[in-house]
Simulated scan of single mutants.
Amino acid sequence: MPNQEMLTKVKSANGFIAALDQSGGSTPGALKGYGYKGDEWSSDDEMYDLVHKMRVRIISSPVFNGDKVLGAILFERTMDGDANGKPVPEYLWSKGVVPFLKIDKGLADEANGVQLMKPNPDLGSLLEHAVRKGIFGTKERSVIHLANAAGIADVVAQQFEVGAQVLSHGLVPIIEPEVNIKSAERAAADELLRDEILRHLDRLPEGSEVMLKLSIPANPGTFDALVRHPRVLRVVALSGGFSRTDACRELAKNPGMIASFSRALLEDLRHDTSEADFDRDLGEAIDEIYEASTEKVAA
């Protein structure tokens, strides 16, 4: 069973989820966005050490706490690291922030207009490890490029298959079938995805709850039925390449959806700023994203 105190917070508290889970190929881009040139590391271990320091600096900031940040999604190495003398998941929860873990191993090549998740034969042992570490839930990402009904059906089927395995370990899955916001077929893909997800939600056993992480829809309100579904704990939105300003503006048009931003949260942060400036910039980002998650406007 999920931690009940964490479950109550995720289900009913105001706020958003910070995505701090860049891994593999996305880590160099995250570090360059943080102000590094790219020649500050010469190995993967050095690169991951720098990104861990970045994440620890973020979660250690006094403005990063459970008042506005409901949860944080972690990369596996971050989950296994320490922050201020405590394991990262324990440290987050001491600040009222619920820890999640990214569990997918990246994307397969595109077929039928989508990219499925790569095989993950060691998922069972990873989920057992996550439980021992005090993780509440998981996140697993696929990508949809075209409004291809067969491809979208494959994505959703795989997502819910993985989700069932996550649920069997007492964790809450964040199912993330991202629609590419640059797709010329974005609106149609949103609708196909919504309908396919609804079919799978209706088949979930009573008492099972999942979360959904979706691209902000092309047409506001497209995912309203998912927000209202009794098997959905929360619907969160990824920024998907939007700037923070644009992502917040579009998110605010969708009642019931809260943010789970990565780049849009971190875009103003730099490694060489003073602690006061860093906390100010992070606090402004948190405030803007919190407002878009909690104060909705007419579309």
Rank of each mutant, 00 (worst) to 15 (best):
M6S: 09
L7H: 15
A19S: 05
L20M: 07
G24K: 09
T27I: 15
G29F: 09
L31T: 00
G38M: 05
E46D: 15
K53I: 03
M54H: 06
I59L: 03
I59D: 00
S60V: 02
P62V: 02
F64W: 12
N65Y: 11
D67V: 05
D67E: 11
L70N: 01
L74S: 04
R77G: 08
T78V: 08
G81Q: 03
K86Y: 14
V88L: 07
P89W: 06
E90S: 04
E90V: 08
Y91P: 03
L92C: 02
G96S: 09
D104T: 07
L107V: 04
A108D: 13
A108M: 10
G113L: 04
G113C: 08
L116V: 07
L116Q: 04
M117P: 04
K118W: 07
P121S: 14
D122M: 11
G124I: 10
L126D: 12
I135M: 05
T138M: 09
V143P: 01
A147M: 02
I152T: 01
E161D: 14
V166H: 05
S168W: 06
P173H: 04
I175C: 00
V179H: 00
K182A: 10
K182T: 10
R186E: 14
A187L: 11
E191R: 12
L193M: 09
H200I: 02
R203D: 14
E209R: 11
N219M: 13
T222V: 12
P230V: 08
P230E: 06
R231D: 01
R231K: 14
L233I: 14
A237L: 08
G240I: 02
F242Y: 15
D246K: 10
E250K: 15
A252V: 02
N254D: 10
I258K: 14
F261Y: 15
L269M: 13
L269A: 12
R270A: 07
S274A: 02
A276G: 02
R280I: 06
R280V: 05
D287S: 15
S293F: 00
E295C: 11
